[in-house]
Design a protein around this nucleic acid. Sequence first.
DNA 1: AGACTATCTGAATGAGCGTTCAGTCCGAGC
DNA 2: GCTCGGACTGAACGCTCATTCAGATAGTCT
Lengths: 208, 208
Amino acid sequence: MAKGTLSSSGSLSAKAPEERRERILRATVDVVRTRGFAGARVSDIAEAAGTSQGLVLYHFRSLAGALDAALTLLEDEFYEDLARDLQEQVGPVERLRHMADLGAGLGPAVGDWRLWLELWVRALHDPDARETRESLDRRWRAALRDVIAEGVASGEFAPIDADSSAIRLACLMDGLAIQLALEDPDMTTQRLADLWWESAVIELRMQP
Amino acid sequence: MAKGTLSSSGSLSAKAPEERRERILRATVDVVRTRGFAGARVSDIAEAAGTSQGLVLYHFRSLAGALDAALTLLEDEFYEDLARDLQEQVGPVERLRHMADLGAGLGPAVGDWRLWLELWVRALHDPDARETRESLDRRWRAALRDVIAEGVASGEFAPIDADSSAIRLACLMDGLAIQLALEDPDMTTQRLADLWWESAVIELRMQP
DNA sequence: AGACTATCTGAATGAGCGTTCAGTCCGAGC
DNA sequence: GCTCGGACTGAACGCTCATTCAGATAGTCT
């Protein structure tokens, strides 16, 4: 047997606790996704993670602690995914087109818009959530603004104000995404991507 | 004394119960506004209405019943306000401009966007709320589409597809409103109205 | 006046749920 | 081998909160 892991009798002693913690965190995200922040119970999380309620409270200090931890996990992953995804694209038009797909949920990042909705409402009453959501939005808008500014500089977009356009397009994405999250009969992922892209084309006066 | 009211000893007997009910309903809306759907307690409603908890449950069958009733009240008032408000304006440009103000909360109607956010999240998990929100959005979009179609017909707007434009502009309004509801530092009512109007001008290719 | 009903109250009930805790299990170091 | 401590469990505690209920009040009809 290889002695790769630290402890002799197996990977349980050193790895298991962290794995467990991770599982609980994932389970928390899942529960919030299906039940919402307001409906998330410790017992739900424990069940989804396949552990006892006690362990959830052992790793995180309270239910609120688990929810907060899940939130920061989401935030970190969102940013990493976004940065990595955008770097893979070349040129502002490509990048912008890709952002349309990301927002629509066609890409791997961004995740579930229902979670965003939940976060927003939590932000109405919880300062921590407010912080998280502001940070997330800032990053998303900044990414958008940078791409737009890049296109303006390269002449592919009209010389508009990148900030105004970014905020408008970001907000439009939010608004479209709401319909998607709520399963509005008039909205699909494809339609979201298309509508948003059309608006971007008009807003930035792109040439076909 | 005038004998205008039905009962002899005063207006209490015939009017008071309905007034009380109304007060409770208003109180429910207020509580949802401040505490959110998830945070609304029977005791909060009773206190805000100046009555006992028992009465809340007497008039509506349960907490959920009170919340539902408050929701339908909102829906009805929204529609009435919107219809009346738009009738007062003449011409599509005027009407559209007015809708920008309404959405921004500058007008009397529409009410508080925080309530809309709450409704959306409730709609994620509650079928009744989903129904209500879909109905509300349909009406709002229909109003928007009608105004746009009117402008297209009169030549004041470019001959675009009224449906697509309506959905885009409606969603943009939602997205902008979220930032407002969440008190995003980059958003004010005025900025919301301006940003939306700019987008409408671009989208519909209005002439200045 | 007396009975009946709608309205209203405040206390009691009981379920649901977060948190605590006493104790088990097991690897690690002496 | 023995102890120590982190990981973990499941039962128990206590609190919050929706709902129930027994009764008070007052208006209405006979």
